[in-house]
Amino acid sequence: MTSIDYAARFEGLSSDTLFALEYPSGDLDRPEDTDAPQEFVEQLLVVLADWRQQLLAGARTDADSYQAALDAVREAWLQYSFRWEGGPSLPYPFDLPQRVTS
């Protein structure tokens, strides 16, 4: 049985990914599919729910990758939801840089 590569589904996910779904032609003056970003995130949430179930059942051990994927979805949706022309300048990502320990 082949193991599902859940983490691959979240690689490169960012608010830019969601904006590209809303504006597939690149014309930022005319959104073409305003539902596409939400539908995409909903699909990712279904993947996360399945992945979580596999982790809780002990069938998988990649909890760190799961957490990274969950954080990527949160970050992308947060940035997408609050970014608009003339809006505040938001950091990307919101996370603080990791401290280097000696």
Rank of each mutant, 00 (worst) to 15 (best):
Q54L: 06
S3Y: 11
S14Y: 06
D27G: 03
D95Q: 14
T34E: 06
L78C: 06
A20T: 14
G58L: 07
R99N: 15
T2W: 08
A8F: 10
D50Y: 09
Y6N: 04
G87K: 05
S25A: 09
S102C: 14
T101N: 12
F19G: 03
P31K: 00
E11L: 12
Q79Y: 12
L90Y: 08
S65H: 01
P88E: 15
E85K: 14
D29N: 07
S14F: 03
F19A: 03
A36P: 05
L21Y: 10
D33K: 08
A68K: 07
L48C: 03
D16R: 15
P93C: 00
A76N: 01
D50Q: 08
L78K: 11
A72I: 04
S65C: 06
Y80S: 01
Q38C: 10
T2Y: 14
G58N: 08
Q54F: 02
Q98I: 11
E85P: 13
Y6V: 02
L55Y: 00
D33I: 14
S15K: 12
W77E: 05
F19L: 04
S89N: 12
G58E: 02
P37E: 08
L56R: 06
V73E: 01
I4K: 00
A7E: 02
Y66C: 04
L96Y: 13
W84Q: 11
G87E: 02
F10M: 03
Q43H: 06
D29I: 11
D35L: 13
T101S: 05
G26Q: 08
Y80C: 02
E85V: 06
D62F: 05
T2M: 13
T34N: 04
L90M: 02
L21D: 02
A69Y: 00
E42V: 15
E85M: 15
R99K: 15
S102V: 11
E75K: 07
A36Y: 06
L78I: 13
D71C: 05
L70T: 09
R60E: 03
A63G: 10
E39V: 10
L18I: 05
S102L: 14
A69K: 00
S102W: 15
T61I: 12
Q67H: 07
D50R: 09
L70I: 08
Y23P: 04
P97I: 08
V47E: 00
Q98Y: 06
F82N: 07
L28C: 12
R52L: 06
P24C: 08
F82D: 14
Q53R: 00
P24N: 07
L56H: 05
L48Y: 02
T101C: 07
D50C: 08
E22I: 09
D27W: 12
A69V: 01
D27A: 14
Y80G: 00
V47C: 10
E22D: 04
T17A: 04
P88L: 15
V46T: 09
T2I: 13
Y92G: 00
A59R: 09
A49G: 05
L55A: 00
E11A: 12
A49R: 02
Y80R: 06
Q54M: 02
S25L: 10
E85R: 12
Q54Y: 09
D62Y: 01
S102E: 13
L45W: 11
M1K: 13
D71E: 14
